[in-house]
Amino acid sequence: MKRFASLISIAALAATLVGCAGTAVQAPALQPAPPGAIAAGKAEVLWLGQATMRITTPGGKVIVVDPWLTTNPKTPAAFKQLQALGKVDLILVTHAHYDHFNDAPALAKMNNVPVYNGGGMGPAIVSLGILPTAQVQRFGKSGTVAPFGPTGVKITAVHAEHSSELVWKNPATDKEETHFGGEPVGYIIELENGFKIWHMGDTGLYGDMKLIGETFKPDLVLIPIGGHFTMGPQDAATAVRDMIKPKYAIPIHYGTFPLLRGTPAEFTSALGSASATRVLVPEPGQKVDF
């Protein structure tokens, strides 16, 4: 299946980064990329709007985080059909809100793969009949799993400062019900080559970001900046500059709705010239090659 996203090479960072002076530089225009275009030993991170990410590991495993595609206004038309993602090996969900969980059950059934959640959401989605037990993998905050074997990808659930209501339409009554959806989490995803990605999910600023940064030393953070429900640009800049200090940051969870007012330009301006972190600003449907 063709992929409809451009590759952004780290070798061409000057064309895709936001510079230290705080001026946003647009990512290249979308261009087709053939299957298998990722080079051996590299990772590929594709942003599809809001918090939805498709991560292809150096070993060829495909992890989809927070899949919300079919009704996501920021998802490119080419990815509105779940089949367009290609093969999927694992799904991670940070919390139960629809804009992070909505397409996870259908995607899991389509690919016969598990949904992993580190915040205790599993019992609710099993008891409600959303997914069978065999497709729900539970672990907890600070727990680490190796879903592809001991020498493969390692995933650790970490804290997120948010909520996690699960809104479910009861087929018997055709009415929406609100259920406990576990606790919100973020994920440290360590790839086979040691590259570490922190998908922060939805979160506000909290002091232990510094501890998590010092413990795991993530190379890349996928950080919400939209505000209202999560950190805005100022708090996100504080987290990156003063607490986590990653090599790279990709802003997510902004611009999808009018309430999510934070912008990448505001984020990089707040970050300031003292930060060594390079900010990548792909458009939805573009991917970054590490």
Rank of each mutant, 00 (worst) to 15 (best):
M1T: 13
K2F: 10
L7A: 13
I10N: 10
L13K: 13
G19F: 04
C20M: 12
Q26G: 13
L30Y: 05
G36S: 05
A37V: 10
A39S: 15
A40P: 12
G41A: 08
A43L: 10
W47M: 09
L48G: 07
G49I: 05
T52Y: 03
P58Q: 07
G59M: 02
G60Y: 02
I63A: 05
V65Y: 01
T71P: 07
T75L: 06
A77Y: 07
A78W: 01
A78L: 06
K80I: 05
Q81T: 15
Q83C: 15
A84L: 04
K87L: 15
V93I: 13
H97K: 15
H97N: 15
N102S: 15
A104H: 08
N111W: 07
V115A: 10
Y116P: 08
Y116K: 06
P123K: 03
I130R: 01
K141Y: 08
K141A: 13
G143Y: 03
F148Y: 07
T151A: 15
G152K: 05
K154N: 14
T156L: 05
S163Q: 02
S164K: 08
V167P: 02
T173S: 14
D174I: 05
E177V: 10
F180M: 04
G186Y: 01
G186S: 14
Y187F: 15
E190Q: 14
E192K: 07
N193L: 12
K196C: 12
L205C: 08
L205T: 04
L205P: 04
L205I: 07
L205F: 05
M209Q: 14
G213C: 13
E214V: 04
T215S: 11
F229R: 12
P233Q: 01
Q234M: 09
A237K: 00
T238C: 02
K247P: 11
I250C: 04
L260R: 02
P264V: 00
A265H: 00
A274D: 08
S275K: 03
A276N: 09
R278S: 02
P282A: 09
P284Q: 01
